[in-house]
């Protein structure tokens, strides 16, 4: 049958790598949206992270420094969004879209002269004999460190939101900024912090594309991953572990459909290439049907600007 020649261990290992960029970016955006801000500029921040990470890694020879550079560039770009929406109270949807346009252009300008260069390799974490365990060795112990870092970040995000005072403040600001303000929380400052965290994570996700996934600099290299990340946040109903599920589901179906093609599946190709999008919709419908709106978990102040009038 179709699935017969596809090795599940190899498939899972591949999808874990494929999902890293959207998972990182989606986690960042999750925190941003939890604080009540909708930043549609993920794609722009990702691609700025991709070129900045690439430039830094090529010039320093260190992928680690490259990832940090990508994160910083993403955060820097998100600061434009933060200033506009938090101080000048601009519309978040439009500002986010403008940020994407700006980021795409800027990355292409910055990337001139970096075409066709190979970045320093990001190596696999040496697990020694663990990597030779059947099935689990391939799935769990054969990746580069960013794969583990992305999973760690899911846990950290979950823990911060659930069990720390910081998480409580972020949620309070996102649920009801008026109330949070009257409790003495600095709504604007919290939101700026969250926006920059979101920028940094998107930047790091972008850097993963240009440093590990491809690895090369090409104009428009992220080709829409930021949009998928946005969708994954909604898919996850603003819950970190569901971001991981969503990213692995989407990445998994993408990898699976290509594998099915390579294995000579009888399913028509065009249906296979639509599959990741259709199945994501289907799963979300199943998950969101039959429940009240409360369980959807959307931050109540999402997308609304806050201005302290007193």
């Amino acid at each position: 049958m179709d699935f017969g020649s596809i090795n599940p261990a190899v498939l899972i290992a591949s999808l874990m790598v494929a999902a890293v960029p959207i998972m990182l970016a989606a986690l960042g955006e999750l925190i941003v949206e939890k604080s009540g801000v909708l930043n549609l500029g993920v794609e722009g921040m990702m691609i700025i992270g991709a070129i900045a990470g690439f430039i830094v890694a090529v010039n320093t020879g260190s992928p680690v420094v490259g990832f940090i550079g990508g994160a910083m560039a993403g955060a820097a770009l998100s600061l434009i969004f933060a200033c506009l929406t938090q101080f000048l109270l601009t519309n978040q949807v439009a500002t986010g879209l403008a940020l994407t346009l700006f980021g795409l252009g800027l990355s292409s300008l910055a990337g001139q002269g970096y075409n066709g260069i190979k970045p320093p390799p990001t190596g696999a974490v040496p697990f020694g004999p663990l990597a030779d365990i059947p099935f689990f060795g391939r799935v769990l112990f054969g990746h580069d460190w960013m794969v583990y870092f992305s999973i760690l970040m899911v846990a950290v995000t979950w823990w911060v939101l659930k069990s720390t005072r910081l998480g409580l403040i972020i949620r309070a600001v996102g649920e009801n900024h008026e109330a949070a303000h009257s409790l003495g929380y600095k709504v604007t400052r919290v939101r700026i912090g969250c926006i920059m965290f979101g920028g940094a994570m998107a930047g790091m996700g972008g850097a993963y594309v240009s440093l590990v996934r491809v690895p090369q600099w090409i104009d428009g290299i992220t080709s829409g991953a930021g949009w998928i990340a946005l969708a994954i946040v909604v898919f996850a109903s603003w819950r970190p572990w569901r971001v991981m599920i969503g990213a692995y589901l989407f990445g998994g179906i993408t990898v699976l459909q290509l594998n099915l093609q390579a294995a000579g599946s009888a399913i028509p190709v065009e249906y296979l290439s639509m599959a990741p999008y259709l199945i994501t919709i289907l799963v979300l419908v199943i998950m969101s049907s039959g429940r009240g709106k409360a369980s959807l978990n959307a931050p109540a102040s999402l997308g609304q600007n806050f201005h302290a009038s007193h």
Partner: peptide
């Protein structure tokens, strides 16, 4: 879509 191209190559290699 460089990332997809990489995935496609990987899928072929896996086969």
């Amino acid at each position: 879509d460089p990332a997809k191209e990489a995935d496609a190559a990987k899928a072929l290699l896996d086969q």
